[in-house]
Simulated scan of single mutants.
Amino acid sequence: MSNFIDYIRIFCKSGNGGRGVTHFMRTKYNAKAGPDGGDGGRGGHIILKGNAQLWTLLHLRYYKNVLAENGENGMKSNKTGRDGKDIIIEVPLGTIAKDEETGAVEAEILEDGQEVIWLPGGRGGLGNQHFATATNQVPEHSQPGEPGVEGYKFLELKVLADVGLVGFPNAGKSTLLSVISAAKPKIADYAFTTLTPNLGMVEYRGGRSFCVADLPGIIEGAAEGKGLGHRFLRHIERNSVLLFLLPADSADHKKEFEVLYNELREYNPDMLQKDMLIAVSKSDMLDDELKQEIARQLPANIPHVFISSVANKGLTELKDKLWELLNKNHG
């Protein structure tokens, strides 16, 4: 079974190495008093770095060309040219880097803070000081720098959504997803069903983002294996947070929540160990008194928030609460 894939294609080029220099010391009496040509600097590397605070590749969607700086040429007086500046691309854990042409996996980032030199910069050339010998004390030879590495590359992230969205079909799940999600990644087809779980990337402050999956068919007998049943439910076990969506106009909020909760418990009691949040949707139609009335029916030990996707109310608070839950175990 394929996971979801969050997917970016970029053109990368590491820096060229600087040229080594042919140069001679000049003294009052000798225009070629000895070689003193310095080496060229190394070209800039392109480096991948793992960041546990990132959940998707969304922040890279505007990176079309990643070009590292070239190394400087060597200078006289045996001075080495400056190295080109490295480019560090921060990626979420679980990111795989591939070459487009060969399909070869070039790097995989699995740990926070892990750094991999993905495309090394070219080495700087040696200056003529290195080529002096007993028989040739005036070498006219120095090396050019090595070229950097370039090519089209893919970054892929296998995503199993961070937030699972649980609710009956009328709860407004797809409306919520369309309003809070910034971009849809390419979604692998599920071979076993025509139903595709809707997946949304939610952009958060500071270029961070997380992933929300609408879990279709989880309800109405999913635990017995109807609909998507076990094969999909098994894949939401990495969901860190379960978001229950209850519509404001539900006849019985307490009962609706209990049905959803029991469905999960019958499928796998471990699911109930996850962090949970309740969002009451369509709440633009409620006054404060009705909100208090609904809040009294909800479980006291699960936080809740009133939202309206259409009126764009409560959505910032919803994202804040989800982010807080997602990151409480990630430092």
Rank of each mutant, 00 (worst) to 15 (best):
N3W: 10
I5A: 03
G15Q: 02
R19Y: 13
M25Y: 04
K28Y: 15
K32H: 11
G40F: 10
G41P: 00
G41D: 07
G43L: 06
H45Q: 02
L58R: 11
R61W: 00
K85F: 08
D86H: 13
D86I: 08
I87Q: 07
P92T: 13
G94M: 01
A97K: 09
A97C: 08
T102H: 03
I109S: 09
L126V: 05
F131R: 07
F131K: 07
A132Y: 05
A132F: 00
S142I: 06
Q143E: 15
Y152K: 09
F154Q: 06
L160N: 14
D162Y: 03
D162H: 13
V163Y: 00
G164C: 11
A171G: 00
K173V: 02
S174N: 05
T175V: 07
K184P: 01
K186D: 11
I187G: 02
A188P: 03
D189K: 08
E203L: 10
G206I: 00
R208E: 12
C211S: 15
K226C: 03
H230I: 05
L243I: 08
D249H: 12
N262T: 14
M276N: 08
M276G: 06
A279K: 08
V280W: 01
D284T: 02
A295R: 14
I307C: 08
S309A: 15
K313D: 10
E317W: 02
K321Q: 15
L322M: 12
H330T: 12
